[in-house]
Design a binder for these strands. Structure first.
Length: 778
DNA sequence: GGCTGGCCCATTTTT
DNA sequence: TGGGCCAGCC
């Protein structure tokens, strides 16, 4: 192997010698029995089933330290895979801390993708690539696919390139190469999918490029076709560790199986109950099948939870119990009981947002008989990002600082991508996709027509777009302002290219020169739109980020794989994010709004994936609840505006699955008085109205609303109506609904009425939301 | 070649 | 309801 690895080996030897001297192993004493079990079972396959908050990272990192400490492996002989860069970074830090020194010598700790890049650079020629291949982001990928779709005379209205990208992505996740697609998929993308996939792969090879899926796919292919290469790595990686195993897709699974095929020293850590990425190719089956794949595997369950109170854990358990085919785990804790999970219903989404805002303010002050919570300790977790809007609007109105986590990442922003395209071109002028991105940014008077000319010239001469431009300019195939600007761009690229690696110009200076001389910075300086200053700010930040690298190439490599943006925002803020984004995080107080059937569980999930989809939604609910340390508040709204249309929803079926002894119902009586068990009809009236009135939560609500009215006039009105309209409805009765107007009852099902509205069509609504036509309060 | 109005559509997202 | 995208106009 390369000298790089020898260097690692050297460090490893000295490091492990030092570590050996440090025996006995105090780190083992810090573990509970199950964790210790998982750490000490070093040889052979191990499945560590680690529930939420059970100290999985601790076990994993200690295991690595133990491997080193016992002399089983040197740092560069351990393959340790995660899904995100963040997880990899955290793991490195924690191993370093345990060892008492930074670990430079673990080159094989990283994401699936970053490790695959390393492997593929070494063996690129085996798949017909050069080792300096570029990694395309989704944007480049889409542009390429659009070209292919256009060339195939396909109506991209009916068959958008985006859909094709989805299909190809799906196939790559399953490790299907174009000649390998099952017949059942032949109809994909109007029957052209397989053909276009093949074309796409050819184009990628021509461009000396790969997409994210290829990173794994190519390496798996190499391992399958070149036994010698595979064996080399099987020997080299003496121990394999995998984090979040429940999230692996088929390609990743094959990759791991191939690498572990020799010694089978593989330790997979995961939680089948937290598998929430099925829609992007993850296979829960991988973790469920582990013992079959690796006979004699040791299975260790981490069930002692160090995060949440018993009420929270039991509520979460109650929900997840509804799933079939689980490996089975029951979390427990030594913590004090704490607060029950709180449940509250609201009239509509706006009211829900208003209530959450006020509740957060109240909790900050430490009212409600609880300790004060700082804003940083609270989070709102939603199913879909469009739900965030109501909260943002509300928080802006009341001046509550918040932070949306997720959203467009730094490196996905337009200006950053443009700047990166410039850098890519400077480093490798053959990068046609980069050229296509910036040839007219800033505006150079080069439009579609000019680009086509460049493209044709390049094609017919078999050269890159940059060289095609040169030929076109020489042959005067293009004139006017465009020609002047184009030749200036090409000259610039040549000039900047010569500065790469120059001792006089640092790569940071070079980046500044490129952005200035190309006119890119000026473009945003002259831009009057409100976003322009922010974009300039981002560009500055980009240049600053270069400081951490030795050269532009190193930076580009890094960025193509690392899309994190570290939002180190100062000041206390409530976090708002999706449930997916919340996985792996924890907060003392968590709000889970929007628990309505159709929204959560999502209708689309259920329609598309049936019971499988519903189970994944249920796992999402489980993930949500288990993010909370001390206080978890679930809420739902009877009405919500969806695409501008009012829609009436039933409370989520997951609400019925919450064990009542761990739930405190805050819902004001009358607003949703039938008890939260009403949706299934199974646990009807277990929260009788009298109980609700007497519940401490309701009393607290009452006392608080005297200090500051929670209810807006509109809502108070409804409460009054609702109390009068206690569910004694009859078929055919004419009723009135606040949002839908007049209608006739055509079905009664417990607490729910099916009503044929005169204007809004037939809908199911909770009885409390309608009243007789004579009771209309206005 | 750039702007604007109308049309269509509308989870979850990492690398 | 609102954002992204395209066609058609200047």
């Amino acid at each position: 192997m390369s000298s790089y690895d020898d260097q690692d080996a050297f460090e490893a030897a000295s490091l492990s010698a030092r570590a050996m001297a440090a025996r006995p192993m105090p780190y083992l004493d810090e573990l509970n029995p199950a964790q210790r079990d998982a750490v000490e079972a070093l040889d052979g396959p191990v499945l560590m089933l680690a529930g939420a908050g059970t100290g999985k990272t601790k076990a994993l990192t200690t295991r690595i330290v133990h491997l080193l400490n016992t002399g089983r492996a040197r740092p560069n002989e351990i393959l340790s895979v995660t899904f995100t860069n963040k997880a990899a970074r955290e793991m490195k830090e924690r191993v370093g801390r345990l060892l008492g020194q930074a670990i430079e010598g673990m080159p094989w700790m990283g994401t699936f993708h970053s490790i695959c890049v390393k492997l593929l650079r070494r063996h690129a020629e085996l798949v017909g690539l050069k080792s300096n291949f570029t990694i395309l982001d989704t944007d480049d990928q889409l542009r390429l696919l659009k070209q292919l779709v256009a060339a195939s005379n396909i109506d991209d209205k009916r068959w958008p390139a985006r859909a094709l990208a989805g299909v190809i992505d799906h196939w790559k996740n399953r490790a299907w190469t174009p000649d390998n697609i099952p017949a059942s998929e032949a109809g994909a993308y109007n029957g052209r999918g397989v053909d276009l996939y093949a074309q796409y792969q050819v184009r990628l090879k021509e461009l000396n490029a790969v997409d994210f899926g290829d990173l794994l796919l190519h390496v798996v292919w190499i391992f399958q076709q070149h036994q010698d290469v595979l064996e080399q790595y099987q020997r080299w990686f003496k121990y394999i560790l995998v984090d979040e195993y429940q999230d692996t897709n088929v390609a990743q699974y094959l990759w791991l199986r191939l690498l572990a095929g020799g010694h089978k020293n593989i330790c997979c850590v995961g939680d089948d109950d937290q598998s929430i990425y099925g829609w992007r190719g993850a296979e829960v089956g991988n973790i469920l099948r582990f013992e079959k794949d690796f006979p004699g595997a040791k299975v260790v369950r981490l069930e002692q939870n160090y995060r949440s109170t018993p009420h929270i854990l039991k509520a979460a358990s109650g929900v997840i119990r509804g799933n079939e085919g689980r490996l089975g785990k029951e979390l427990w804790t030594e913590a004090e009981d704490g607060e029950k999970v709180r449940l509250i219903g609201h009239w509509d989404g706006d009211e829900e947002a208003r209530w959450v805002g006020e509740e957060i303010e109240a909790m900050q002050k430490g009212t409600r008989g609880m300790r004060p919570f700082s804003l940083n300790e609270m989070a709102i977790l939603v199913r879909a990002s469009h739900q965030m809007r109501a909260f943002e609007d509300r928080f802006l109105t009341i001046g509550l600082p918040y932070l949306v986590i997720g959203g467009p990442r730094f490196y996905e922003r337009l200006e950053i991508r443009d700047a990166m395209a410039y850098f890519r071109l400077v480093v490798s002028p053959d990068d046609d996709l980069a050229f296509e991105r910036i040839y007219n940014a800033p505006r150079r008077g080069l439009g579609e027509k000019a680009f086509q000319k460049i493209q044709m010239t390049a094609r017919s001469n078999g050269v890159s777009l940059v060289d095609g431009s040169r030929i076109l300019l020489e042959s005067k195939g293009i004139g006017g302002k465009g020609a002047v600007e184009l030749s200036r761009l090409i000259e610039g690229l040549d000039r900047w290219g010569r500065m790469v690696g120059s001792p006089e110009v640092s790569h940071i200076e070079l980046a500044e020169i490129v952005l200035d001389e190309s006119g890119y910075t000026a473009m945003w300086q002259n831009d009057k739109t409100p976003e322009a200053p922010g974009r300039l700010e981002n560009l500055k930040e980009l240049v600053k980020a270069l400081e951490g690298f030795e050269n532009l190439q190193g930076f580009l490599e890094h960025v193509s794989l690392i899309m994190d943006n570290d939002k180190s925002d100062q000041g206390e803020k409530v976090s708002i994010m999706t449930l997916h984004a919340a996985k792996g995080l924890e907060f003392p107080a968590v709000f889970l709004p929007g628990w309505e059937d159709g929204l959560f569980p999502s209708q689309r999930s259920m329609d598309e994936s049936g019971i499988k989809g519903l189970e994944e939604e249920r796992r999402l609910a489980y993930v949500g609840i288990t993010r909370a340390e001390e206080l978890c508040t679930i809420s739902f709204a009877g009405n919500r505006r969806v695409f501008g249309q009012w829609q009436s929803n039933l409370p989520s079926r997951f609400i019925d699955e919450l064990p009542e002894e761990h739930v405190e119902v805050l819902t004001p009586p009358g607003l949703y008085g039938g008890g939260y068990g009403a949706a299934s009809g199974g646990i009807e009236s277990r929260v009788a109205e009298a109980d609700v009135y007497n519940s401490p939560g309701w009393r607290r609500m009452q006392s608080r609303s005297q200090q500051r009215p929670v209810s807006q006039p509109k809502e108070t009105k409804n409460q009054v109506i609702d109390l009068q309209a206690t569910s004694s409805h009859t078929m055919g009765e004419r009723v009135f609904h606040q949002k839908f107007g007049y209608g006739e009852i055509v079905g009664i099902e417990g607490d729910k009425l099916e009503i044929a509205f005169e204007k809004a069509g037939t809908k199911k609504v909770v009885a409390r939301f309608v009243c007789g036509p004579d009771d209309i309060p206005f």
